[in-house]
Design a protein around this nucleic acid. Sequence first.
DNA 1: CGCGACTTTGAAGTAAATCAATGGGCGTGG
DNA 2: CCACGCCCATTGATTTACTTCAAAGTCGCG
Lengths: 241, 241
Amino acid sequence: MIRLPAATTRYVDTMSRMGFFQNWQAESMERLSAGTKLVTVNKNERLAHKGENLEQLYVLVSGLVRLFIPLPNDMERVVALVGPGESLGEACLVLNEACPYHAVAGRDSHLLAIDAHLFRRELTRDQSIAQQTMEIIARRLMDNLRDTEICAQRSSVQRVACFLMQQQPEKDMISYKFSLPARKQDIAAKLGLTQETFSRMLGFLQKQGLIQVDGAHILVENGLKLAQISTLRETKEPCQP
Amino acid sequence: MIRLPAATTRYVDTMSRMGFFQNWQAESMERLSAGTKLVTVNKNERLAHKGENLEQLYVLVSGLVRLFIPLPNDMERVVALVGPGESLGEACLVLNEACPYHAVAGRDSHLLAIDAHLFRRELTRDQSIAQQTMEIIARRLMDNLRDTEICAQRSSVQRVACFLMQQQPEKDMISYKFSLPARKQDIAAKLGLTQETFSRMLGFLQKQGLIQVDGAHILVENGLKLAQISTLRETKEPCQP
DNA sequence: CGCGACTTTGAAGTAAATCAATGGGCGTGG
DNA sequence: CCACGCCCATTGATTTACTTCAAAGTCGCG
C-alpha cells in the first residue's frame, strides 16, 4: 500500500472531479486536502481490519473494494461492494467506533484517504456536508436492510431471484441486462450462499428460460416470472402453469 | 390506533422528559410539538407498512415495537426491536423513501408521532439535531451489521452463542444475567432461526452447563466457553477437553 | 501455449426447517 | 378458588435443501 505524501501533492482537483464531493465548499475542500492522501492498493491487499479504529475516511477513485465479515469456517459474508465514487467507513467514523468489517481490494484500486479528525471537524462546520454524510449513511442502512431481506429468503433460488430483480435498472422492466459487479464468489457471499449453490441456481434459472448467463454478463428475459419465484411459498416445481 | 389531537394537547413536557430529545433547543421543541401527536397502539396493531411512505417520525414512549420483513413462507425476519426512548423510521424519512419494514406493536404502546415535514425542516435548521440524527442512523447501521454477522454464522448454536454474548453488559464479563427483550419467537426471528431451533439450542447450551434459562430470564455462567463455541470451525462435539 | 484463478458440475452427508402434538403459564370467568 | 381457554414454548419425528468435498472445466493473460 503506497501513500503519496500530502505535503508534495494536493488533491483538490482530483477531489472536485468526483461526484462524492459535489456541492462541497471550496474552503472545505482546501482544508480537507491538507490531510488527504492518495492511496494505492493492489488486488487482495487489505485496507481496513475488523475491530480497528479507522484513522481516515476512504473514497474510492478507481477499482473495487469489498467489505466483509469473516466467518469461523474460513468463509466470508460480504456486506458491501464499494465502487468508484463511493466511500467506506463513514458510520464508524461518525461514532468513533471500531470498524465492523474487513475491507479488501477486489482489484488494483486508488483511494483518497481523508484524515478522520479533519473530516469530523468539517462535519460540524459545514451544514451541507453533514447533511450529505447523513444521507450516505442512511442510504447504506437502507441497502443493508434490503440485503437482509434477500438473505432472509429461505430458498436459494429465491435469494438469487431477489438479487437479479435488485439489478433491474428501473421499476417495471420485464427484460434487462447487466454485468456482475464482482466475482461470482463474492456475489454469492453477499447473498449468503456458497459459490457452488449460486452457480447451480443461475444454471437452473437459465434452464427455465428466465435468464441467459454469459460469464459476468446476465440477461434477464422474464422479470415477471422471476418475481413470481421470489414470492413463492413452495420451493418445489416453480411457476409453470 | 388512537391519535390525540395536537391542537388540544402539547407534548413539550413529555418530550423534554425523554432522553431522545436531550440537547434539543427549546424553540425547536416548541415548533415540533405543534405537529406532534401522542399515539396509542394495542399489542399486535400495525404502526407502519412496508412500502408505504412514512408521514411521521415515531419515538417510543412505552411498550415495544418490532420491525420486520415479511417472508414468502409466512415467516418474519425481525430487523430491530424498538424500546422506549428509541425512534423508528429516521433513515427513510431522511431519504424520503418507502419504509423497508413492517412495524407492529409487540405490546400495548405509546408513541410520539412527529410530523415528517416539520422534522425535516428542523433538521436543516438546527445543527445539533442533524448531528444527533446522523448518530442515531449510524448506530442503527452498526447494529444491523452486527446482526448480519450473527445471522451469517452457519450453525444455529453459534448464532445463539453470538446473541448471548451480545447481551453481555460490559466487555470481559464471564458471567452475567439478563432478560430477553421480547418473545422467544421474535428473538429467534431476529437470529434467522425458527422458534423450535432457538428453543433447542438454548436447551443444548443449558445441558452443557453454560447457561441457565428460566422463562425470559437467562443466566450466562460461562461466557468464555460461549465465545469458544461461536468461533468453532466444527460444529460437532463442542469444546470439552 | 500453458499456467493460475475462477467457475462449473457431480455425489454424499448433515443441519435445520417443517409438521405435529404436548406442556406450561396466565388471565378471565364461572 | 378452581376451570377453562389462549398464547407461547417445548419436544419429537421426518424431510429436504444446502453445504461440503472432490474433480473437471473455462477463461484470461503472460
